[in-house]
Design a protein around this nucleic acid. Structure first.
Lengths: 343, 343
DNA sequence: TCGCCTTCCCAAAGCGCTTTGGATGGTTAA
DNA sequence: TTAACCATCCAAAGCGCTTTGGGAAGGCGA
C-alpha cells in the first residue's frame, strides 16, 4: 500500500541504512545524498511506519489519556474536550500520538496495567484526581511516566502534576465577596471526593474564618456539576429562612444553572444576589466581552492541556528530570454578577 | 520491563509458536497445554506488545479520530466529548485503541495522509462534515476505511455514514410550533457550511412553506453555537418591528443563551415565547425530568458514538460489507418551553 | 610510499510478534 | 506390517524500521 523504507532505498540505489540515517538527521551522510533522499521521500509521500519504528526504537511515540466514566452518574467531564484540544496541539507538534481509553472508573487500574504491558504508550496523563488517589501509587509502581492534571491530597510519594491554585482562587473569591459585605455565601461545589473540590472548599472556609463569618452547612453543597444541579441548589437555598446573599460556583455550567434558578424567582445577579464562578474558559461557554456575564476565577483549561502535555513529554524524554510540578494562578476577573450586599 | 512471548515460552518449556497459538485460540494445541499457557500468561500479567503484534499482522487495531480545530474561531465541539465516550466504549470492548489527532482544520488532509502512510490506524471517523466535504473524496481515494458522523450533501460517491434525521427533526419541530399558531419562527442555527445545519434549515423551510408562512431572513441566523450567540440572537430579534413568537435552536447550549436573553427582557418561555431546541443529551446539560426545561428534538450523541464505532469496526473487518448507512430518527419531547402563541 | 584519518556508505542483527511449512510420534485403516 | 493420518508441537522467516559494527575510498602528513 504505502511505500516502505526498503522500496525507497531501492529506488534510490541506496541501502535502507543510509536512507534511514539521512531522514533522521544523522551526520554521517553526504549533504547531497541527504537532499536527494529527502526529495524522493517527499515525492513518494513516504512516512515511516509508526509501529515498525516504535518496535525498533522501543518508544511508542504516544501518550495515553485514560478517561474514567463514572459508573454511577455517567457524566463526561465537559472540561475534558478543551483540555484535550490543548494537549493534542502539543503532541502533534512533537510527533506524538494521543491515545484515549474510555473506561468504567472501577476498571481504571487494569487499563493502566494493560497500557503498560502492551507498551502502547510512553506516558499517561491522569485525569480527575480524587483525594488520596490510588492511581498515583499504581502508576509510580508500574514505572510508567505520568503527570497528574490536578493533585491528590494525602499522597506522600512525590509525583509530577500541573494544577491551578484552587484554594487560593476560592479564598480570593470569597474574600472579594466578603469585602462587599456578604457573609452568607453559598458554595455550590463539585463532588468533594475530587481533590480540586476539596481545595476550593478549604479556600472558601479559610476566607470565611478570616472574615469572622461562621460557615453554614446549609449553604454548602457538593454534586455533579450540571446545569440543573446549579438551578436546584439556587432555588432551594434562596428559600431558606436565612438565604445566602452570594453564591460561589465551581463551574460555569453550574453558574448558568444558578443564574436561571435565581432569574426564575425574579432575582437579578449583581443587583439582588452576587455570584462568583470558576471559569475554565470553555470555548463554547465564553465568559468574556467588555463586562463578562460572571465575575470569575479564570484559568484556561486549554492552556493547562498544553502545559501538561509539554511537561509530560519532557518527563518522557528525561525520566530523571524528577517530579515536575506547576501551580497556575487564576485571575479574578470582574463581571456583572457581583455587587454589594443588598440591604 | 514487561514479559515477552519468548520469555513466557521459555518459562513454560514451549516454543513461541505454540504459546502464540494457544493464546490466540488456534485449534492445533492440546487443551491441557492451552490451559497451562493461559494460566502462566495471566500469572505473569502477559499482554502481547501492541506494536509487534500489529506489525506482524498488518492491522493497527486502532481507530483514528481527527478533530479539526477551527483556525478562525477555535471552538471545540461540545458534542465531541460525549460522542467519544460512546465510541470509546465500543473500541475498548473490541480490543481497539482510539487515537485522536487535533489538527488545524486547514491541515486535515495531510493528517489523513499521514495516518494512512504510517499505518497508525485501521480506519477513521470523520467529524463535522460540511457541504460537499472534500475529505470524503480524499479518504475514499486513500483507501482508508472511514465512517462519517453526519453526511455531506453534494458528494455523489457512496460512503458510509451515521446521521440523525436533521431535516425531519426540524420539520417536525417547526410543524409543531405552527400547530400552536406560531408563524414567525426564528431559526438560530449552526454555521450553514456544516451539513447538519443546512439540513435543519431545509426542514424548517419546508414546514414553513407547508404551513403557508413566508420565511423571513431577519429571523434566520447561523453561527458558532455558543451560549452568548443564543443570547444575542434572542435579544436582537425580539426587538425587531415584527419579532418572532417562537425560536428554534440548533443546540441546547444556544437554547440556554436564548432563554437567558428572553429572561433578561422579562419574557418567559412557554408563556410569552416558545422554544424548541435540538438536544444531543449532553451529560452535563441534561434536559430531562418529568417536564424537561426545553421542548426538544432529542437524540443521544453518545449512542451515536456507540453505533458509529460498531459500524466502522464492521467496515474494517469486512471491507466489502459495502457502504453502511444509518439514519437515526429523533424524538420530539415535550418540555416546558412551548405553548400556544400569545395574542 | 606508507600509515592514519575522515567521509560516506552498507550488511546484518534485532525489536516482539504471527505464520508458513514442516517434524514427530502415536493411531488407525488396509 | 505398512501406509496414511491425526494431533501436537517447533524452526525459521518476515513485518518495517533502527542501530551496531564494519569497510571502501580518498586525503593528508611524514
Amino acid at each position: 500500500m504505502s511505500v516502505t523504507l526498503k522500496q525507497l532505498a531501492a529506488s534510490l540505489g541506496l541501502s535502507p541504512t543510509t536512507v534511514s540515517r539521512a531522514l533522521n538527521g544523522f551526520p554521517e551522510v553526504n549533504a547531497a545524498t541527504r537532499r536527494r533522499v529527502e526529495q524522493a521521500a517527499a515525492a513518494a509521500n513516504y512516512h515511516p511506519n509508526t509501529r515498525a519504528k516504535s518496535l525498533a526504537t522501543g518508544r511508542a511515540q504516544a501518550i495515553g489519556h485514560v478517561i474514567p466514566l463514572s459508573t454511577s452518574h455517567e457524566i463526561v467531564n465537559p472540561v475534558f474536550a478543551d483540555f484535550i484540544a490543548g494537549a493534542g496541539e502539543v503532541y502533534a507538534r512533537n510527533g506524538y500520538e494521543m491515545i484515549l481509553r474510555v473506561v468504567p472508573d472501577d476498571d481504571e487500574a487494569s487499563a493502566y496495567r494493560d497500557l503498560m504491558a502492551r507498551g502502547s504508550v510512553d506516558g499517561v496523563i491522569l485525569h480527575g484526581p480524587r483525594i488520596e488517589d490510588a492511581r498515583v501509587g499504581l502508576l509510580a509502581e508500574l514505572g510508567l511516566p505520568f503527570l497528574v492534571h490536578g493533585r491528590t491530597s494525602g499522597v506522600n510519594t512525590p509525583y509530577s502534576w500541573l494544577d491551578i491554585n484552587n484554594q487560593r482562587s476560592f479564598h480570593r473569591a470569597t474574600e472579594f465577596l466578603c469585602s462587599f459585605g456578604h457573609s452568607r455565601i453559598a458554595l455550590i461545589n463539585g463532588l468533594e471526593e475530587m481533590d480540586f473540590a476539596r481545595r476550593r472548599r478549604n479556600g472558601y472556609l479559610e476566607a470565611l474564618a478570616k472574615a469572622g463569618s461562621e460557615p453554614d452547612p446549609m449553604l454548602m453543597r457538593q454534586g455533579e456539576m450540571t446545569e440543573p444541579y446549579g438551578y436546584r441548589a439556587a432555588q432551594e437555598m434562596i428559600q431558606l429562612p436565612e438565604p445566602p446573599t452570594a453564591f460561589l460556583a465551581s463551574s460555569i455550567i453550574v453558574a448558568y444553572g444558578i443564574l436561571r434558578g435565581l432569574s426564575d424567582l425574579g432575582l437579578k445577579l449583581g443587583r439582588d444576589i452576587s455570584l462568583v464562578t470558576h471559569d475554565d474558559e470553555l470555548s463554547y461557554l465564553p465568559n468574556d466581552g467588555d463586562v463578562p456575564l460572571f465575575t470569575a476565577t479564570r484559568s484556561s483549561v486549554r492552556e493547562a492541556g498544553r502545559r501538561a502535555a509539554s511537561m509530560l513529554l519532557r518527563l518522557v524524554a528525561e525520566p530523571d528530570s524528577g517530579p515536575l510540578t506547576e501551580l497556575m494562578e487564576t485571575s479574578l476577573v470582574l463581571g456583572a454578577s457581583t455587587g454589594p450586599v443588598r440591604t
